[in-house]
């Protein structure tokens, strides 16, 4: 599903405040179809950059990322956008919901740039995450836990092959954190999506069978 080889990313001095700094150097990483794995990493370790590279939001300096058989690193930006829209789901720590859009619209936008909008599927998934009665609410009318569930629904509505989750429970308390994590893993399983989650929370990491330490994975000198 996901294969990474010799991936490198550095930022120019303007962004690092000094000499060009290498943030990511991952010689190899792989994740099978439907597999769920977690990466342990502290703040500033480059794990978000790593996920951005996999998602095609950032272009790698060198190396190779293959998603569902497509070599993303050989694609132009527009093609990466299309691949992201079709095959990837992204769950952010801060949820990144569009505040001016309703719950249903936020989820519909998750498929708007990929295979096309299926309102029925969006409703169904929102029902699945327990928000069937909040379709026309706006994000600021929801609790933090409910917002997280919208983000989960948005990431999965397009039936992605791979879901990337960046500290998805970082803004939730312990009780909601556990519930949110269970929901993410469960829905990914149901939809057959592989899950790559990064977190520094041991409580979260303990729930994964496959956990990699990003410090070991990332050989960039920081």
């Amino acid at each position: 599903m996901l294969e990474i080889a010799d991936l490198r990313k550095s930022f120019p001095p303007a962004e690092t405040g000094g000499a060009r700094a290498e943030i990511v150097r991952v010689p190899a990483f792989a994740l099978g179809a439907g597999e769920q794995a977690a990466l342990r990493g502290e703040s500033g370790s480059g794990k978000t950059t790593f996920l951005h590279l996999i998602a095609g939001i950032l272009a790698a300096d060198s190396g190779r990322i293959t998603v569902d058989g497509v070599v993303m690193t050989s694609l132009g930006e527009a093609q990466r956008d299309r691949l992201r829209a079709q095959k990837l789901g992204y769950i952010f720590q801060t949820f990144n919901l569009l505040q001016g859009f309703t719950v249903l619209e936020n989820v519909q936008l998750g498929m708007a740039f990929g295979g096309g909008v299926d309102k029925g599927r969006a409703r169904e998934l929102l029902g699945r995450v327990g928000l069937g009665h909040r379709l026309n609410h706006f994000p600021n009318q929801l609790s933090t836990g409910q917002q997280q569930r919208v983000a989960v629904a948005r990431a999965l509505v397009n039936r992605p092959k791979l879901v990337l989750a960046d500290e998805p429970t970082g803004n939730l308390d312990r009780v909601h954190s556990r519930a949110a994590l269970e929901l993410i893993r469960e829905v990914c399983r149901e939809y057959g999506a592989a899950l790559l989650l990064v977190s520094h929370d041991e409580e979260v990491l303990r729930q994964f069978e496959k956990v990699r330490d990003f410090k070991e994975l990332n050989q960039a000198v920081q």
């Binding site: 930006e77 956008d81 829209a85 990144n96 919901l97 569009l98 708007a112 740039f113």
Partner: peptide, 16 residues
């Protein structure tokens, strides 16, 4: 800016 970046992260192309 943030909304536009979110849309881009969802796969919206620059030209969109």
């Amino acid at each position: 800016r943030r909304d536009l970046a979110i849309l881009r992260s969802l796969g919206a192309r620059r030209r969109t």
